[in-house]
């Protein structure tokens, strides 16, 4: 399969494609990363999983449209950056904490203006939102699916219905977020 066909397949597909890519380069990546950075097998796997997540996310977000190198070279480049960034932060080699990494990854892109405690309230609100709203807004904001694609995959009558539903779900999420923020134990002196 051509490199750019892989990108198209991931863009239009889902977790199955993510799994295929994961398996395809796993062995070579793990051998390389343990040799290059002297990390354990488990640490190497942790870095590889994050590498695949970034690759997938870059395609979904439209940051990666065409590959000028092979998928393997691209993945090794991401892996190297993750390992080096982790070493830079920790000043020495330390196993990567995937949970912290994920929090920082989404924090970096949203820039200034958001606060960790608000992020925690937002996560709680999201959990309380329930299905199918959670799935719908995840498809829209994370998977970057179009409204037409969402309407088709979630069996809405048409795009307009899906769009209305998405707006209602976001309105509900805002309300749940406000409830979280105004809970007595969560009320602090903040800007919201």
């Amino acid at each position: 399969m051509l490199q750019n066909e892989i990108i198209e397949k991931i863009r239009s597909g889902g977790q199955a494609e993510l799994g295929v890519i994961y398996e395809e380069h796993r062995k070579e990546f793990l051998q390389w990363i343990s040799k290059e950075y002297h990390c354990s097998s488990d640490d190497g796997k942790d870095i590889y999983q994050l590498t695949i997540l970034i690759f997938y996310d870059n395609i979904r977000q439209g940051k990666l449209e065409h590959l000028v190198s092979s998928v393997k070279t691209y993945l090794f480049g991401i892996g190297k950056n993750i390992a080096l960034e982790n070493m830079r932060k920790e000043k020495r080699y330390t196993p990567i904490n995937q949970e912290t990494w994920l929090n920082e990854y989404v924090a970096d892109e949203s820039g200034q203006g958001t606060d960790d405690s608000f992020f925690e309230f937002a996560k709680k609100a999201l959990v309380k939102l329930g299905q199918p709203c959670q799935q719908l807004i995840e498809l829209f904001y994370y998977e970057k699916k179009s409204i037409a694609e969402i309407a088709s995959s979630m069996h809405y009558k048409n795009g307009e219905t899906a769009k209305n539903q998405k707006c209602k779900c976001m309105a509900r999420l805002r309300k749940l977020f406000e409830i979280e923020m105004t809970k007595p134990q969560n009320v602090v002196n903040h800007g919201y």
């Binding site: 997540l53 997938y56 949203s110 996560k123 999201l126 995840e138």
Partner: peptide
């Protein structure tokens, strides 16, 4: 504006986390 930004951040975090769980299961 900031509230909307933090909500979208949480949605993206949730999506990433689900895919990470998927990769961990696969592994």
């Amino acid at each position: 504006f900031d509230q909307e930004k933090v909500l979208i951040r949480a949605i993206r975090h949730q999506g990433l986390r689900e895919n990470l769980t998927f990769l961990k299961t696969l592994e």
